[in-house]
Amino acid sequence: METIEKRMLTGNKAMAEAIALEMERDPTVFVLGEDVGKYGGIFGSTQGLFDQFGADRVMDTPISETAFIGAAIGAAAEGMRPITELMFVDFFGVCMDQIYNHMAKIPYMSGGNVKLPMVLMTAVGGGYNDAAQHSQTLYATFAHLPGMKVVAPSTPYDLKGMMISAIRDDNPVVFMFHKTLQGLGWMDQLDASISHVPKEDYTVPLDKANVVREGKDVTIVGLQMTMHYALEAAEKLAEEGIEAEVIDLRSIAPIDKETIIKSVKRTHRLIVVDEDYLSCGISAEVSAIIAEEALYELEAPVKRIAVPDVPLPYSRPLEQFVLPNANKIYDEAMKLINEW
C-alpha cells in the first residue's frame, strides 16, 4: 500500500513559506509593513522571513500606512514586487486613498502602460471579541472597487498556492487572510487552520471557486470561516439525509460565476453565507448572479446569512448573535428544504 507523507502546516506558516519561496526565486520580491520583521507579523504572516532574508528585504515600517503602501506602489511601478501588510483590514481607513485612487487605478489610467505587481496582504475577521475596529472582513468594500484582484483563501494549501499566484501576478492583489485560520497559538485552535501543504512551490488560481463538498439538495456558498461553518452544517444535514454542496468562493474579485451557476443548476437551492455585512455585499452579489443567469433553476428563494447591518459589537453574546455559524446555516437549510 502506498502511503502519502502528510506535511501539516498552519495557515500562517503556509503563507510565510510561499513568500520565502518567491523571495528566493525572485530578488525583486520584498516585504514591508508594521511588525513584519523580527516579530514575524502580528498574525504570523512573515514568520521566519526576517531571519532568512534580513532587514533589507523584510522591512519594519513606522505606523505610516499611507506612506508605506504608497511606497509599495511606487516600487512596484519600478518593477519591484513588493508585498505590503495592512495589519488589520479595519485600518484601511487611513490609507484607502493610496489603495483605491492609486494602486487600483494607475494601471487603468495609464492605459496599461504602468504595471503594479504588488500584494497587499491584510488580516480579516472577528469572533474573538475584538470589537468594531478590529473584527471586520470588509470583503465587499474592496471587491466593489475595480482594479484590484481580491482573494480570501480558506485553507493552508490555498494560502500558500494563492500567495504564490498573487506575488507572480502583474496586477495588484489584495490578499485577505482570516486571523482564526492562521493557526496561531493564542487564538481558537481549529482543525481547519492546519492541513497538508506540499513543500515545493505550486500555484492556485486567483479566479476559481472550489467545490469542497458535493451534494444535490442545496448549494451553500461561503468563504474562509463561513465556508468551514458550511461544511460543519453539511455534516449535520447529511444525518437528516440532505446532501449540501459547499462552495469555497476563495476569489471575490473576480468572482467565479460559472462554478456557482453550475452548482445551482444541480441543486436548485442556494444559501450564501458571509462574515461581512449583509447589505450590498458578497451575498447580494452571488444572489444577483443567480437571479440574472439561473433564476428559473431555483426551486426556492435564495437565502442569505451575514452580519446584519450593525458594526461588530464587543460583548460575547452580542457578537455571537450577529456572526454566522453552523447552526444558523443548518436551520436555514432545513427551512429551505422543508418549506419549498
Binding site: N129, D130, A131, A132, Q133, H134, P311, P313, Y314, S315, R316, P317, L318
Partner: peptide, 14 residues
C-alpha cells in the same frame, strides 16, 4: 461586556 457598561457592552476596552 455588560449591559451596565458605558457602551452597553458594544465598545469594550478600546
Amino acid at each position: 461586556g455588560k449591559v451596565t457598561g458605558l457602551g452597553k457592552g458594544k465598545g469594550g476596552h478600546m
